[in-house]
């Protein structure tokens, strides 16, 4: 692995080839906000709060620091009017789902985000996917996953697996930036009483799943 030197916020930074901008910045003590990042997991690039401005070969572009690899002689800016503006809007959008989340409230203070900017939809889940990816990549249990797409995307436990695997694990709970995962898990159990009309095929499994105690 050869060394790569670049500039982040005017500071000369040295990094290893193959590192991401986020790793390089954090290694140099420069903080970049993230919600979906976790050092044990593959970079996801979902929350996009880590957008930074990269200048290479005279071209400026906005990239996600958590997925973008370092390059020799890159110039990186982690704050600008545009970046702050993006982080503000993104925080506001996520706050609509989880207004009480401490992680989001801290971001709101930093980027002057208004938690009432968008209509409330307190599902508590901001779809960072930490639980899904931790369960798959670290635990390799695949007990929780995404379902559907776009604005209809949700996380969903596979009931049979949740019944056998989750009760003694719960390692994803503390990862949740909105503390809502437990709610989702409890919800899975309660679903037995009220199957979702939209997804009977999934309910079928819910109905046959034993209740974890």
């Amino acid at each position: 692995m050869s060394n790569v030197s670049l500039q982040i916020d005017g500071k000369a930074v040295s990094a290893k080839e193959g590192m991401t901008l986020l790793e390089a910045a954090r290694g140099a003590g420069i903080s970049i906000p993230t919600v979906c990042y976790h050092e044990k997991l593959e970079p996801f690039g979902g929350c996009r709060l880590c957008v930074v401005e990269v200048e290479a070969g005279g071209r400026k572009s906005l990239v996600a620091a958590c997925t973008h690899p370092v390059q020799q002689d890159q110039t990186v800016n982690t704050r600008s009017k545009q970046i702050d503006g993006i982080r503000k809007v993104l925080t506001e959008q996520l706050l609509a789902y989880a207004p009480e989340s401490e992680v989001l409230q801290a971001l709101a203070r930093e980027y002057k985000a208004d938690k009432d900017r968008f209509p409330r939809e307190p599902s508590f889940c901001i779809l960072c996917g930490l639980c899904v990816r931790y369960c798959a990549e670290v635990k390799q249990k695949y007990a929780v996953g995404f379902v559907d797409r776009g604005p209809s995307r949700e996380i969903s436990f596979v009931p049979e697996l949740a019944a056998t695997e989750c009760w003694d694990c719960k390692q994803c709970f503390p990862l949740c930036p909105t503390s809502a995962l437990q709610a989702a898990f409890v919800l899975t159990r309660s679903l037995r009483a009220s199957p979702s009309p939209a997804r009977p095929a999934l309910n079928k499994q819910v109905e046959t799943a034993p209740v974890p105690e």
């Binding site: 690039g45 996009r48 993006i86 993104l90 959008q93 797409r149 776009g150 604005p151």
Partner: peptide, 21 residues
Amino acid sequence: LTQESCGKCSPCREGIKQMHR
């Protein structure tokens, strides 16, 4: 696009949804 966004990244998923609203 609200129907076709994959929903992985929040600026697209949420931004398109708000623009649609």
